[in-house]
Amino acid sequence: MSSPTKVFCIEDDRDSADLIREDLTDRGYVVKVAYDFSAALATLAAFMPDIIVCDVNVPGMTGFEFLESARGIIQGERKIPFIFLTGNADKASIMRGHSTGADEYMLKPVDFDVLDTVIRKYTEHEEALDGTPLPFGLTRREVEVLQWSARGKTSAEISIILELGKRTVDFHIDNAREKLNVATRTEAVVRAALLNIIQL
């Protein structure tokens, strides 16, 4: 049995940080929180997380600077996925986040279903039920959502069936569409069916 995914969260708002830790811990993650970048840098190498979730605006330095410093500390180790979680919705911040090397740039308030999905996207290596890897890096949940789409279900209906938020369903569909290199949900369903990933 694989060990729990380790999440390192850097967030100076203690209430927000504690809420993130509580929710992710309830979902089975091992979560360590730092309230400032100095503490984060001091404990990063010892904790060696599987993924980092980081605010952009934390006293001492920006999240962009922290990302560069963190990558320097863990140089030579495996690439650790990095998620910015911030209220900065301006285009310049989003572009800088991606150009700095962040894997995702998510906006507050936190949608924990989406955050959970993003974390799993970067930390889980999905296999089909028979143990063979799923093609195109698809996850079981993405295949499940595509299968229900093939049956004519809307995102709202799928969210009820799978007990997920509608935004989470749309997120899975968008991920599947990108992995299958198609522009629309319908094209994703058709390609998945042609490749025998799902059944029509």
Rank of each mutant, 00 (worst) to 15 (best):
M48G: 02
L19V: 15
A92V: 12
D90V: 10
V114L: 15
N196D: 13
K108V: 06
D50L: 03
H98C: 05
E142W: 09
P4C: 01
I94F: 11
S159K: 05
A70P: 08
P135Q: 04
E11A: 04
K32M: 11
Y122S: 05
S16M: 14
L164V: 03
S159H: 02
P133T: 06
E142T: 06
L194K: 14
C9M: 09
R191I: 07
S3Q: 11
L44E: 04
L129I: 13
E157L: 03
P109F: 09
L67V: 02
E65C: 00
Y105G: 05
G72V: 07
L146T: 05
S3R: 15
T186E: 14
I51F: 02
K179V: 07
E178F: 09
T100Y: 11
A45S: 15
P4R: 05
C54R: 04
I198Y: 03
H98F: 15
E178R: 15
H172T: 02
C54V: 01
A92E: 13
T5P: 04
G152A: 03
A39I: 06
N196Y: 08
G97A: 03
L162G: 01
W148S: 08
G63N: 08
I73M: 09
K179I: 11
L162R: 13
I20Y: 10
F82I: 01
R27T: 02
M106F: 10
